[in-house]
Design a protein around this nucleic acid. Sequence first.
DNA 1: CGGCAAAATTGTTCTAGATCAAATTTGCTC
DNA 2: GAGCAAATTTGATCTAGAACAATTTTGCCG
Lengths: 223, 223
Amino acid sequence: MLVRTSAVCARPPAGMLSALAGGQIFSSEFRYRRGEEVFGEGEEAQYVYQILSGAARTYKLLPDGCRQINSFHLSGDMFGLENGASHRFTADAVVETNVSIMKRVSLLDAMTRYRTGPGSLLSLVTRNLVHAETHMLLLGRKTALEKVAAFLLEMDERLTHPAVLTLPMSRRDIADYLGVALETVSRTLSILKDEGLLQFYGPTQRRVVLLDREGLARLEAQG
Amino acid sequence: MLVRTSAVCARPPAGMLSALAGGQIFSSEFRYRRGEEVFGEGEEAQYVYQILSGAARTYKLLPDGCRQINSFHLSGDMFGLENGASHRFTADAVVETNVSIMKRVSLLDAMTRYRTGPGSLLSLVTRNLVHAETHMLLLGRKTALEKVAAFLLEMDERLTHPAVLTLPMSRRDIADYLGVALETVSRTLSILKDEGLLQFYGPTQRRVVLLDREGLARLEAQG
DNA sequence: CGGCAAAATTGTTCTAGATCAAATTTGCTC
DNA sequence: GAGCAAATTTGATCTAGAACAATTTTGCCG
């Protein structure tokens, strides 16, 4: 873990964490290499994280090694803030990732001054809950095609509809997020390409151009 | 919807809602017949509910009519309290059910006095989040056998390990909660019976005796 | 640029669980 | 208690997607 401490960020990065910090809370900048663990399930939740660049994933493992990715965290996203004392997930870096870190207690202190606002701990937890509820519907009741379409649209939305959608995560990550096999993800993407709903951009298969968002939305709603 | 208004309950039923009420918040008692809707997805979340007897389910529907039950609410459980202004689920009665109802705003007012305690809105939302996260793992990565075992253990736990587990919900409800077909639930229960892990009690198949909780737990962890 | 390991695709086979289809069983209602 | 509709079980197929197995593509390294 490379450390670049910056007690108070000279130019605070975007997002609530630093907004709350506002020059009053000490935050440090850390860098994780791809695959490096940020925190483990069950560990004490001492710090809170915000992505400056790169991406992280939070997940749980079953005893048989099966992984269920709970969510991806992209630039600007905050993660690792728990209501209880310990982390309920493991988190690691999807690619080389820079995060801003601050003490949980400092942040919670700062938050009490903003109790009711959209930047409160409650709204954060609620946002996570809404995401989890939506994802339950996807995992329990959608086909592979619907799942992949939903995933693409979620990423497109969160990256604010870029011309070229650059996915930081591998097919395996997507599979473990959607509850399908990685081959199924690959096949489904090929189908969507063949049907003209998307195309790959450049040499890598992680850059996607969504050619028909309407069509994808129709697929997502029901196969 | 049968109404039996009782401005302030003479003998308050168990649970936080009435505890918070503590003679200061007006609550009414309502009765819903089986299948009757308590509130619909998208409706304004004006009231908060607590089960006095019976059971309710909250769920979402896909356009094709597929249903994903988010959770079951049993005696003492509170539901329908949203952070936002509208309900994110539909709720209806699984069987004939009595609920205590109070205005959302009154409850929230009362709660501000207990902001940090285990009876706060934040802990309620967190509890829901933990449940949703656990359920995501189940939906995404468990086999039918693991799902059914997990379901039985959840109900057993929540009803505090009764000698006879009386399930208020149908096989269809269980199926829509676990993301499998109702026939699969029935078959899986038969297998568990044949293997001596449970037996049915009396004439109805909704009364279950768990003969080997350890064994079920082993199945749940990994098929 | 060449070599190599990791990632992704594509093909083949297999299977858990869905779907379709009857029997039973159960709980109501008169 | 008879009659009936709903719920449940059980059986027989069918299929979406898993699992296994090569290839091919890509990114990365010296």
